[in-house]
């Protein structure tokens, strides 16, 4: 940017700080009524202005400059906090973009703030706004990922039904990610409990697509590699039709109508194994 001198910008902001802050604060309070208190907004704005002026004094002109490391950190923290508190994207962005209201007071004054300086500052505020928005989106994504993971953990309990028999009752829609988590958890439980029988009950599953069916089959094959047998129980009529229609080969994988049938079969197999040993 030709002509825009960082030190000069810092000087302008510093000398007109009171006016800028007042206009900025008013704009934010109008927009965020009830969301934040005046004193809190004032404190946040004070911190942002300090960091902005500090960065300019160190020669920064674009937000990506190293001089603005502190400011970027501050904005990132602020956006993350707002995302957690449930602020809307607009409410978050407005807190920064409203700084322009403060800058417009400069245009109306007679102390000769040049157009070039004003444009540089406005452009910098645009950068701040975009950065805030990006940080907000990233924070929201992180929250969603976290919740999805927690949900995944909660929704896949592996229970011990009997000595040597564990079961996982699946409820709700199965997607690839969830099926994979179930698979890993079930196999680990086999090792941890020394169980040679696993039952995957899909009574509560409304639909099965090719991918999910493949994951279930892979689980059964993996369990076999480890030395355990897997039974799939609770296949609803519609799902049975889908499986056949999709041409999914269940091969020699044992299926049972209900969880109870599967348990009886597992116990019987256990019994045979025991009597064979004598």
């Amino acid at each position: 940017m030709p002509g825009a001198d960082a030190a000069r910008l810092a000087e302008i902001l510093e000398s007109r700080r009171a006016d800028i802050s007042a206009a900025w604060l008013d704009a934010v309070i109008t927009e965020l009524r009830g969301r934040t208190t005046r004193s809190e907004a004032e404190r946040e704005q004070g911190e942002i202005l300090d960091a902005l002026v500090g960065g300019l004094r160190h020669g920064g002109l674009r937000l990506t400059d190293p001089a603005f490391d502190g400011l970027r950190g501050l904005l990132a923290d602020l956006s993350a906090t707002r995302a957690r508190l449930g602020f809307t994207p607009r409410e978050t962005a407005v807190g920064v973009f409203a700084l322009k209201e403060g800058l417009y007071t400069l245009a109306a004054d007679e102390q000769g703030t040049g157009l070039v300086e004003l444009m540089s500052l406005v452009r910098l505020v645009d950068d701040l706004g975009l950065f805030t928005f990006e940080s907000f989106a990233a924070a929201r994504e992180a929250i969603i990922a976290e919740q999805a993971e927690q949900l995944l953990e909660l929704s896949t309990p592996v229970v011990k039904l009997w000595e040597g028999v564990v079961a996982v009752p699946l409820v709700g829609t199965l997607d690839s990610a969830r099926t994979q988590v179930v698979m890993e958890k079930l196999l680990q439980t086999l090792v941890d409990t020394g169980s040679e029988h696993a039952i995957i009950d899909i009574t509560g599953v409304p639909a099965v697509d090719t991918q999910v069916a493949q994951h279930l089959l892979k689980t059964v094959v993996a369990a076999r590699l480890m030395g355990a047998e897997c039974t799939i129980s609770g296949i609803r009529p519609q799902i049975a039709q889908t499986i056949v229609a999709l041409g999914i080969e269940f091969g020699d994988i044992s299926t049972k109508a209900t969880l109870a049938d599967a348990l009886v079969a597992a116990l019987r197999a256990n019994g045979t194994a025991k009597s064979a040993i004598g």
């Binding site: 698979m183 086999l190 090792v191 480890m226 030395g227």
Partner: peptide
């Protein structure tokens, strides 16, 4: 008889 295959190993082998 092969014993003690880890779950992650079994899953990988299937894949």
């Amino acid at each position: 008889v092969v014993v003690g295959m880890r779950p992650a190993v079994a899953i990988t082998m299937v894949e």
